[in-house]
Write a protein that binds this DNA or RNA. Structure first.
Lengths: 138, 138
DNA sequence: CGGAATCCTGTACGATACTG
DNA sequence: CAGTATCGTACAGGATTCCG
């Protein structure tokens, strides 16, 4: 149980992170690790663009994903509160997925990285070719 | 590969990103995939905080990383132009790593995600427990 | 000290088949 | 249609060892 109240330091909006709790760091890192997953990001984007989407259609929006990973990732995201899963007890069965506010906020947060990638991908490619050309380049 | 031209739906839901090349998307996604790696992020952060750092010391800054992954990740980052590697031909050999401007900009871009994780980790944990408690829970 | 090479294990992921 | 279960493979990544 999480009986422990985290010492929420009153949300001190310190611009510099002079003191970083190692525990929080680990937790944050864990979150990043899961959230930064390739499929998670793609699903997040697909869901963000298309809103409420059914399982199979979602699979179509994410090219190359297997049904296993789709289910698995979706599960994880649901577990973390990023998506909401709605089951309609009808036949044929229909299940719809949509982003929670938390999921949407994550999408926005990642927007910065996305933009960065778009802005700098040329530089990265250039760097790669420079690297491949010969790192011994004096 | 995957050179299929997907039906580009002319959705102008994003005024800023009216035109998104699927190829660019793939590339960006590839970049995200590499950049969002657990070790990459940790090294990025360590380097961002400590500036110029030597190989072994860098390993100390990243708890739990093996020498293999340190080298490997560092290589990748150097290849992508995120870090600069400086070798001093002296004995004992000394190699220093530091972020390139590109690497620093990435750090800033990821700052948003980092902040998101710090702000919402409590919600995530709550969601997890809610999920674990029983998803059948009405 | 920095790092490359080797070995070995856990597991992430895809393909397939089956259920409700 | 949505999802689970099983199996097989490919690869990530840790421990160890050797070289500059």
């Amino acid at each position: 149980m999480t009986g422990k109240n985290e010492t929420q330091s009153a949300s001190e909006d310190s611009p510099e992170w002079s003191e970083i709790d190692p525990q929080v760091s680990e937790l944050v890192n864990d979150i990043i690790g899961k959230v930064a997953d390739k499929w998670t990001l793609l699903i997040l984007e697909a869901l963000d663009e298309n809103g409420v989407t059914r399982f199979k259609q979602l699979g179509r929006f994410v090219p190359g994903i297997s049904q296993k990973m789709l289910t698995q990732t979706l599960r994880q995201m649901e577990c973390d509160g990023l998506v909401q899963r709605t089951i309609y007890a009808e036949v044929p069965p229909r299940v719809e997925y949509e982003l929670t506010p938390l999921g949407e906020s994550l999408g926005e947060a990642f927007c910065g990285v996305w933009k960065w990638a778009e802005q700098h991908h040329a530089e990265i490619e250039a760097a790669r070719q420079r690297f491949a050309a010969g790192r011994g380049r004096a």
